[in-house]
Simulated assay, not measured.
Amino acid sequence: MTTGTAPIFSGPGPLDGWNGLGPLIALPQKVPLIRLVDRPPLYETPRVYFQSPFTPAAAFFVRSNLSLFPTNIDLKT
C-alpha cells in the first residue's frame, strides 16, 4: 500500500512496519496505527486515511490517560 511515492509499510509485514513517526501496531479491532508512546497508550491514524473526508472507526486514533486500557468488557461485572 502506498501514498504518493512513499510506502506506508516497510519491512516484512504491516505489524513490523515503520512510517517515520513510529512503528505501525495492530490493536484489537483496529488497522495498524502509528504508536507514538505505549504508556499511556497513544496511537495515531496513518496519513493514508486522511485522503477521505471520513475516517473509518478501525483507523481512528487511540488515546488514554490510563497506563492500560481494556480490550474487552465483561458486561456482567
Rank of each mutant, 00 (worst) to 15 (best):
K76C: 07
V48M: 09
F54Q: 14
A26D: 02
I73F: 13
F9A: 03
T5E: 07
P23F: 04
F54Y: 14
A59S: 06
I34D: 00
P23T: 11
A57Q: 12
P70K: 07
L15R: 15
Y49M: 05
I73C: 04
P7N: 04
P41L: 12
P32D: 05
V31T: 11
P56M: 10
P28Y: 08
T77P: 00
W18R: 01
P53Q: 11
K30R: 14
Y49P: 00
P23V: 08
L36D: 03
K30T: 06
L27R: 06
Y43G: 00
L15A: 14
L21A: 06
P7Q: 08
N19M: 10
Y49D: 01
T3F: 03
L27E: 06
N19I: 11
D38N: 11
L33V: 08
N65V: 10
I73E: 06
S64T: 09
S10Y: 06
N19V: 10
P41H: 12
S52N: 15
P40M: 03
L24Y: 02
T45Y: 07
P40Q: 12
R47D: 05
V31F: 04
R35Y: 03
I73M: 12
R63T: 14
T55S: 13
N72I: 10
I8L: 04
T3W: 03
L42F: 11
G20E: 09
D38M: 11
P32R: 02
E44F: 13
Y49T: 06
D16H: 12
I8P: 00
Y49H: 12
L42R: 11
W18L: 04
P56Y: 02
A57K: 12
A58R: 15
I34A: 04
L66N: 13
I25R: 00
R63H: 11
